[in-house]
């Protein structure tokens, strides 16, 4: 088979994938761009609305609350999870006896399906019978009402989400293994301590991997917060855990305001894009990336 023909028939293998992407991502994305400027209830034909949906959102108090809550949720959960992931990756980076089992234990909560995970935490955080408060109470610590108290509810949802950090953990472990041993050896000869080594070698070399983990976490915080919030709090108490995906679901699928839902959707796209750009700037780009 000639080179030319070989390459052309390679494209055939790509077709199913490109078909799926067009159908499930590209077409919906374009559709939501159009839909955001219409009134549509899924029954009668959509009618042009201009900027009306966006203007409605600007004065919609619930949307404001949901945006603030979502940003707060990201601000709590992303740094917390990244720090914990980084610490665990450092702890379990070196091969030694038993480390495989420890790594497996850390990864295990990540494979628990979202619905089951939410129900488990709903029970653990139960203010009266939940194991967490029984444990805290038995050692004389305060026992907050967690999900029932508007002041702690959002933090409690973020806390529950922290333990599903397996993907980032694996990425950072892989990143740590890319750092050549000689660097550590040279630093030891120079008399560097542990902390100095983390600061001078690990952090700079791990920057691209950390950035990857943070970006992934940002996006996942937006999409994976829906199931826990729907099952654990339903957005309450007093809208304390109303996040944007839940509001989209309620607006579009429960109240059939597709146009308004699409307008929110579009703003989520923009917001996440903005957060990604901001984080990228904060990290100063990919740094030493030679991966891929």
């Amino acid at each position: 088979m000639t080179h030319r023909r070989y390459q052309r028939s390679l494209l055939l293998l790509l077709l199913p994938f490109l078909f799926g992407v067009t159908l499930l991502v590209v077409a919906p994305a374009i559709l939501s761009l159009g839909l955001a400027f219409t009134h549509y209830d899924g029954l009668s034909a959509p009618s042009w609305a201009g900027w009306a949906n966006f203007q409605a959102l600007a004065t919609n108090q619930l949307f404001g609350i949901a945006v603030v809550n979502s940003l707060l949720f990201v601000a709590i959960s992303v740094p917390l999870r990244t720090l914990l992931t980084f610490g665990l990756a450092l702890l379990f980076a070196r091969p030694r006896r038993g480390v495989g089992l420890y790594r497996a234990a850390v990864y295990l909560p990540t494979v628990v399906p979202g619905v089951a995970y939410a129900l488990i935490w709903l029970w653990i955080l139960n203010p009266l019978y939940g194991p967490l408060n029984l444990l805290l109470g038995s050692v004389g610590l305060p026992t907050p009402a967690w999900l029932v108290d508007p002041r702690t509810a959002l933090a409690a949802v973020a806390l529950a989400a922290v333990f599903q950090l397996g993907e980032g953990f694996v990425i950072l472990l892989a990143g740590l293994q890319e750092i050549p041993d000689e660097y550590y050896e040279t630093a030891t000869l120079d008399g560097a301590g542990r902390l100095a080594m983390v600061r001078a070698i690990v952090l700079p070399l791990l920057t691209p991997w950390l950035l990857l983990v943070v970006l992934r976490d940002l996006i996942v915080s937006v999409q994976s917060s829906f199931t826990p919030v729907l099952l654990m709090t339903g957005g309450g108490p007093y809208y304390a855990t109303l996040l944007v995906p839940l509001l989209i679901y309620q607006t579009a699928f429960e109240r059939l305001r597709f146009g308004e839902g699409a307008a929110m959707t579009l703003l989520v796209f923009l917001g996440v894009g903005l957060l990604i750009a901001l984080t990228y700037r904060l990290f100063g780009g990919w740094g030493y990336d030679e991966a891929v």
Binding site: V21, L23, L24, V25, S32, R216, Y249, A252, A262, V272
Partner: peptide, 20 residues
């Protein structure tokens, strides 16, 4: 393309995927 697809927040697609 693959990396960009990974970056798309899924809630942004629920509604219009439903329509498709």
């Amino acid at each position: 393309l693959a990396v960009a697809l990974r970056m798309v927040p899924l809630p942004a697609l629920w509604l219009t995927r439903f329509l498709v």
